[in-house]
Amino acid sequence: MSKKTIAFVLAGILVLALGLTGCGGQQQAGQAKVLRAAGEATFAPFEFQDEKTNELTGFDVDLIKAIGKQMGYEVQYQNQSFDGLIPALDSGNIDIAISGMTITSERAQKVNFSKPYYKSGLTILVKKDDDSIKGFKDLAGKNIAVQIGTTGSMEAKKIPDAKVREFNSAAEAIMELKAGGVDAVVNDMPVNEYYLVQSGGQEAKSVGERLTSEDYGIATAKKNTELNEKINKALDELKQNGEYEKIYVKWFGVKPE
């Protein structure tokens, strides 16, 4: 075989390999295309570990699997710390981050965001018998628990004289409130509401109005614009064919706004 022929064959192999992985997923001969997605599985009802099956489940998990199916990909969803999601995208260790991540200008400088798929906001949890905190203005000088790396943490740090304690998960922040270690928890509204439903509202309550209006987005690496476009297209299609609404109602009990 001549050098020219060898070079031609190698070039063909390279083109084939790039075609299999160009969208950010991975594929081997004879296998389904795979997208590696991740989120922190302590953010019920968006992503959490089912106590009975030990499987990762939640609204985000169902949604990204439906999006992957619409795109013709198999989605492998893994648990990863929230503050490690963007670095994992940047390093190429994952293709997608979907974890109740609020779209912010700061984050948008580092990743591509899909169209918004959920509208949220920040609310306050306090102990059931605490009537001293009725809204965000009453948090001045208080001890506040938040999840590290979240918009709840960012906003809590703006409260005058507040002592903000950061925890690895929303569940740990709520446990600290139950133990009496803090006066309040500032977190995303659906997470707080889900906790109150699951606990029967026995130990805590939500107070005040929603502080912010936030949009959750699906994040991809800044350089992977093709994948972001395909996710947007699939999300639009799921909203049109009713699958998005079906998943939404399953986890929140109401139709999307």
Rank of each mutant, 00 (worst) to 15 (best):
Q147F: 08
Y73P: 14
D188N: 15
V197L: 11
E214Q: 14
K137W: 05
K233V: 08
G253Y: 00
A44F: 00
R165P: 04
N228M: 06
Q109E: 13
I67K: 03
E106M: 07
A173E: 00
N168A: 05
D131G: 06
N187V: 07
E229D: 08
E47I: 09
K239R: 09
A234C: 03
E243K: 13
P160M: 15
A11M: 09
T220Q: 03
E209V: 12
S91M: 07
D60S: 12
L238A: 01
A219W: 02
C23G: 02
G200N: 11
G253K: 06
G152D: 08
K250Q: 15
Q27R: 06
K137L: 05
G58D: 07
E176Y: 14
T104P: 00
L89P: 06
N232T: 07
M1Q: 14
A140I: 07
F8N: 13
L18R: 01
E155D: 02
D236W: 03
I98V: 10
K250C: 14
A140D: 08
N187Q: 12
A32Q: 10
I86C: 10
V61M: 01
D60T: 05
L18W: 14
D161H: 10
V182C: 14
T212V: 04
I98S: 01
D188Y: 15
N228E: 05
K250F: 08
T104W: 02
V146F: 10
